[in-house]
Amino acid sequence: VHHSAMSPEEFISRIMEAEPPEIYLMEDLKKPFTEASMMMSLTNLADKELVLMISWAKKIPGFVELSLTDQIHLLKCCWLEILMLGLMWRSVDHPGKLIFSPDFKLNREEGQCVEGIMEIFDMLLAATSRFRELKLQREEYVCLKAMILLNSNLCTSAPQTAEELESRNKLLRLLDSVIDALVWAISKMGLSTQQQTLRLGHLTMLLSHIRHVSNKGMDHLSTMKRKNVVLVYDLLLEMLDANT
């Protein structure tokens, strides 16, 4: 069934099925962390998650119908935002903690060992608190993640060819489906019409904060790489170079 013919319920069901499995760092963490060891654990985990993120994106109904160029552009623009939203979702029931994976959990204070990371941890914790206050539902979370992916490059690409224009139109229709799905998820919560509208506004406004933290995180990782604090390789290197 094409996504344009799916009900919002079916669409959400498909993106729930696309959710990546829980991922483990699978390293012996030697505490206290050093700047290098913490950065190495963070980047190792990110690299593993990135591979699963590509598979997740391909399962979003309609994503693989976009041009390959658009698929690459979208993923390279949003990857850190997607990782951060996932982190917030895992951490939402753990105030003051960042649950990078079931075997890699950090307190805010542990960020002290990496120069400049505490500020990013605080921004991540603040956005997570906001999601906690809003009592973010799983259906809403998966819609927001798909929105981040599909919206990530919308204002920077001007279609030139007929193929690019076709892909952009497909992208816009796909965004419509995701917005419909989010509206439907909110409508199930038994809120008044006005409360539903406000909730939609509050949830989507949080996306601008996530973009902001992601930009900070990207700058931080680039600095750590430049200073040789951490060796960045494989898919993560490809994604990071795309942003520097």
Binding site: L52, I72, H73, L75
Partner: peptide, 24 residues
Amino acid sequence: TSLKEKHKILHQLLQNSTSPVDLA
């Protein structure tokens, strides 16, 4: 450098059907 060359791994992962769990 073309987009495909600049993003070899990403391009491959988008195009192939190998289980990403194996690759991870």
